[in-house]
Design a binder for these strands. Structure first.
Lengths: 195, 195
DNA sequence: GTCTATACGTTGATAGAC
DNA sequence: GTCTATCAACGTATAGAC
């Protein structure tokens, strides 16, 4: 692990704090103690809490989008879906953290308009990427889907987001795997199902 | 509207406050101002905030369970699913409120064990009721499903919970309707789909 | 039951020394 | 850049008068 600047450490711990407790569930004091500085030092880098939150969600989004782009290198929709789900499952291993954007989406009334916009864009981009996978699967396998790709993608993404919440609530990846299996079914050749 | 005791008013406003801002997003002061009493009066009825939250989620759960039981009077799985979705859509009309349990499920690390237990039971009972609908549909129409009823119910319930979040985030019931259509498809006769 | 008064830690934030 | 000192407002909570 490389040495991080104070600013980087602040951002890193903020990511964890929000994913655990939410924006209204942590304070500058919590963050200051984790990094080993005084709260006034946080204000030097992030004048207001909203600045901190906006920067955190922007950074988080950038990282996840990078992982999303890596999927483009995979040839089939099946490969892409498998890798996508593996990313999620790995993230779910930190048993007490959910998706940062999933957390902010329930706290939307406490967020600034700028932060809200990042949350919405994050949702839409994931839905679009899932829709793209489904469309590709339809082409690859000449198969049908129970709904239009765009609508089905919205359903699957909603289910994945809440499955991460349930993963922590129940301490079990059962629901995440259930959604994953359904997605894998939709991007596979039809009739792969039991005789 | 009938006259409510102070205690009832406190509970009623707490339901709204949690559904809007979350447990960490409202204070005794907010609640006191809404009801028109002093914060010390709240402590008379609910000694600690956790007492208030526990009672709120218990009351909310009881109300929703009552609506769930009403579904048993409907003959077909299709009727039950339609009524179930109508309940959700009506609730989603209060555009700035999500399911109280959906909100608490993301704030789980801030809740007492007793409150967490109510949240988990609420989730499980909904999943079971949806699974029951799906099993009945399989019997009624001798149809197949893309997954076992129990797993499919988990996926659908997760999608519905997050669709309520998205309903507020985007100010559009689009995602809620997408999940609803998929559920209706699963409880209907097969081949109802386009030629 | 409801209030006044009060306690006391926490909160996000600022000014200014070093 | 980081700190000390300080701020006013807010947070839950309690004691006791009425």
């Amino acid at each position: 692990m490389k040495t991080q600047s104070v600013r980087e450490q602040l951002l890193e711990h903020t990511l964890v704090l929000i994913r655990r407790r939410g924006v209204n569930g942590f304070s500058y004091r919590d963050l200051a103690e984790l990094v080993g500085v005084k709260t006034s030092s946080i204000h030097y880098y992030f004048p207001s809490k909203d600045d901190l939150v906006l920067e955190a969600v922007t950074e988080y989004s950038a990282r996840v989008m990078e992982r999303l782009r890596e999927l483009d290198r995979l040839p089939t929709a099946q490969d892409q879906a498998r890798a996508y789900l593996q990313n999620l499952r790995a993230a779910a291993c930190h048993g007490d953290q959910i998706c940062l954007v999933g957390m902010l989406s329930t706290e939307v009334l406490s967020l600034s308009p700028a932060t809200q916009a990042v949350v919405r864009d994050f949702f839409r981009l994931h839905e679009e990427r899932l829709a793209q996978m489904l469309e590709q699967a339809v082409r690859e396998h000449a198969r049908s889907l129970p709904a239009a790709p765009h609508e089905l993608a919205q359903v699957i993404y909603a289910a994945l987001q809440n499955a991460l919440v349930s993963n922590r609530l129940f301490g079990s990846a059962e629901r995440l795997d259930a959604v994953g299996q359904l997605l894998m079914d939709y991007v596979s050749a039809p009739m792969a199902r039991a005789a």
